[in-house]
Amino acid sequence: MSITFENIMTMAISSSVTMLFAAIVMDFMLFEKKGGVKKEKRSIVATGTMTLFYLVYFIVIWTRIGAIDVQGTTAVRALRMTGTILVALGSAMNILGRISLKGNWADHVRIYKDQTLVETGLYGIVRHPLYSSLMVMMYGGSLAYLNWASALLTTFVFIPFMYYRAKQEEIFLMQEFERYANYSKRVGMFFPKFWR
């Protein structure tokens, strides 16, 4: 049995998504029942609703709704490989962001009594690397599977939801840390500020 381009792409994407889900499960096991909560707000945008989005996204790709049917030219393979690399990169970014965040992670909007403001690593590049990394993964998947419908879902459903969630978190962080206002001026929300 020969290994095809399609097999390699599927293995890379499946491995990346599996590692990300393992990291999410680990965060739940380590931090969801963590005590010392100072402030908390339940959010409609949490792991459950994000998982629902992923299921819809997966169904769109799996059923090929919005798939662009083109032959496997070198340019098409390059696009699909770029998408696969973006999925893997996004997964790695998310896992690294979780490692930096440590015990500050929560499924809902929460400030702990021992909360710290993380400004290093990926958090020195973007304020919400977990959300940014998921966007990279979603667009990467759309490119890997040449699917315009999944790209539209990401643009018009996923990103607005992430923006809403990030703004909720930032209200708490602004109240908790005096230097957060300066941090948010220096560092972009989802994308790096190249024009400082």
Score class of each variant (00 low, 15 high):
residue 148 W to E: 11
residue 98 R to M: 14
residue 147 N to A: 07
residue 112 Y to M: 07
residue 119 E to F: 06
residue 142 S to T: 11
residue 118 V to F: 01
residue 136 V to L: 13
residue 142 S to A: 15
residue 107 D to C: 13
residue 120 T to A: 12
residue 125 I to L: 11
residue 144 A to V: 00
residue 114 D to A: 07
residue 134 L to S: 14
residue 144 A to Q: 00
residue 163 Y to E: 11
residue 137 M to L: 06
residue 153 L to T: 04
residue 117 L to V: 08
residue 163 Y to M: 12
residue 157 V to P: 02
residue 103 G to I: 06
residue 107 D to P: 09
residue 163 Y to F: 13
residue 115 Q to A: 07
residue 150 S to K: 07
residue 123 Y to M: 08
residue 137 M to P: 05
residue 131 Y to F: 07
residue 117 L to T: 06
residue 119 E to D: 09
residue 138 M to E: 10
residue 161 F to S: 11
residue 144 A to T: 01
residue 137 M to A: 13
residue 141 G to R: 01
residue 106 A to C: 06
residue 96 L to G: 11
residue 138 M to F: 15
residue 155 T to F: 12
residue 145 Y to C: 09
residue 162 M to I: 14
residue 156 F to M: 08
residue 102 K to G: 13
residue 156 F to N: 01
residue 119 E to R: 11
residue 116 T to S: 10
residue 112 Y to A: 05
residue 129 P to R: 02
residue 95 I to L: 01
residue 96 L to A: 15
residue 140 G to Y: 00
residue 130 L to K: 01
residue 120 T to R: 08
residue 142 S to N: 08
residue 128 H to I: 12
residue 126 V to W: 02
residue 115 Q to N: 08
residue 122 L to P: 06
residue 124 G to N: 03
residue 119 E to A: 13
residue 93 M to I: 12
residue 160 P to E: 01
residue 162 M to H: 14
residue 94 N to S: 13
residue 164 Y to W: 13
residue 148 W to N: 11
residue 130 L to Y: 04
residue 121 G to H: 07
residue 112 Y to Q: 05
residue 164 Y to T: 13
residue 94 N to F: 14
residue 114 D to R: 01
residue 162 M to Y: 14
residue 104 N to Y: 09
residue 123 Y to I: 08
residue 97 G to Y: 01
residue 124 G to V: 11
residue 136 V to A: 10
residue 138 M to V: 15
residue 164 Y to H: 12
residue 129 P to F: 02
residue 121 G to S: 09
residue 114 D to F: 04
residue 163 Y to C: 11
residue 115 Q to L: 03
residue 136 V to G: 09
residue 104 N to W: 06
residue 113 K to W: 00
residue 115 Q to K: 05
residue 157 V to K: 00
residue 114 D to H: 03
residue 151 A to E: 05
residue 100 S to C: 11
residue 116 T to K: 11
residue 107 D to Q: 12
residue 104 N to M: 10
residue 160 P to S: 04
residue 122 L to G: 05
residue 110 R to C: 15
residue 157 V to Y: 04
residue 136 V to N: 06
residue 150 S to L: 12
residue 121 G to Y: 06
residue 103 G to Q: 10
residue 156 F to A: 10
residue 124 G to M: 02
residue 113 K to D: 12
residue 134 L to V: 15
residue 95 I to E: 02
residue 105 W to L: 04
residue 147 N to P: 09
residue 156 F to K: 01
residue 157 V to F: 09
residue 117 L to Y: 04
residue 141 G to V: 08
residue 94 N to L: 14
residue 107 D to S: 12
residue 96 L to Q: 10
residue 110 R to P: 04
residue 158 F to Y: 11
residue 108 H to Q: 08
residue 102 K to H: 10
residue 125 I to R: 03
residue 155 T to K: 07
residue 117 L to W: 03
residue 148 W to D: 09
residue 137 M to I: 14
residue 165 R to G: 05
residue 94 N to Q: 12
residue 156 F to E: 03
